[in-house]
């Protein structure tokens, strides 16, 4: 008798969990890559990304990677990329520069800069921008570790991004990882560039070592998240993978980090889904 009841309870619980489980929190499913096969790092639209660099002096690399991802999301219906920054951080990390955007391969007229006074205003502006269906992507510089940007806020941004189909890239700095609802988390480290066309002593095009720390994308789905990194070149045609290696094989150039600093998404996801 008792066993039957327990079974019933179990099945009911399972059903409730099934109902409550939100697709956004499901970490298991890999995202299909957008576009051509060689563009295996191009994430589909409507996602919240976090792009981490270890230090703020690598702000050029994070912005470059985020814009490179955003460029593929541009379309005639969604002609704009919005770059957000706190006014006081402009001198610290540099303002996105129109002429540089052009050299990077992005039409500077489609890029609008928004300079907010406070982090609350910045987050408001992100939300407002995400809801607009004419915006392809929002790239927001988060220089510090603001308290206002907590799990709840990132979850809200993630849901809004999914419902409007606008991607959000939060470029962040440091080695600490906080709990966040971002679907994909990248770690970008600038890498020594390849050779320039005519000058052996000149720096080549942008090259980064990119690690997908959270979430799975396309071909990388075969491996567990957090163990894949790529050496990428950014060319005018998109990403070119120079070298893909696994940290498990010990060939990575990435410096090791303490694993404890990483947030554990599934536990958080379950907790939230049960809280309603």
């Amino acid at each position: 008798m008792l066993g039957v009841k327990r079974e019933q309870m179990e099945s009911l619980r399972a059903r409730i969990a099934q109902i409550e489980k939100r697709p956004m929190l499901e970490e298991g499913a890999a995202l299909p890559p957008r576009g051509a096969e060689q563009d295996l790092l191009a994430a589909p639209a409507g996602l919240l990304h976090e792009v981490f660099a270890d230090e703020r002096r690598d702000a050029g690399a994070t912005l470059g990677f985020a814009l490179a991802q955003a460029r593929g999301l541009l379309s005639p219906e969604r002609p704009a990329i919005l770059c957000l920054q706190l006014t006081r951080e402009a001198q610290d990390m540099g303002l996105p520069y129109g002429a540089g955007l052009k050299s990077f391969g992005i039409d500077p007229h489609g890029v609008v800069l928004i300079r907010a006074e406070s982090i609350v205003e910045l987050l408001w502006a992100i939300e407002e921008a995400v809801s607009c269906r004419a915006v392809a992507a929002v790239v927001a510089d988060i220089g510090g570790r603001p308290k206002a940007l907590d799990f709840t806020v990132s979850r809200r941004l993630s849901l809004r991004a999914a419902s409007a189909g606008t991607s959000v890239f939060l470029t962040r700095y440091g080695e600490e990882r906080e709990a966040s609802a971002a679907r994909l988390r990248w770690r970008v480290v600038p890498a020594l560039s390849g050779t320039a066309a005519f000058d052996a002593h000149a720096p080549g095009g942008p090259r980064w070592r990119v690690e997908l720390e959270k979430g799975r994308l396309g071909q990388t789905a075969t491996a567990r998240a957090g163990t894949v990194d790529f050496l990428l070149d950014w060319t005018e045609n998109g990403f070119v993978v120079v070298d893909s290696s696994r940290t498990t094989e010990g060939t990575s150039a990435l410096p090791d980090r303490a694993p404890s600093s990483r947030a554990v998404p599934p536990a958080l996801g379950d907790r939230l889904s049960q809280a309603g």
Partner: peptide, 29 residues
């Protein structure tokens, strides 16, 4: 409708009214 340019202009209006006129800018060469 979901017309792009109009939607964007209204977004910029809203942002400007909240963040100030010099907060929402574009690059002019």
């Amino acid at each position: 409708t979901r017309g792009g340019a109009e939607n964007l202009d209204r977004l910029y209006d809203r942002m400007t009214s909240r963040l100030g006129p010099l907060a929402v800018v574009r690059s002019k060469f």
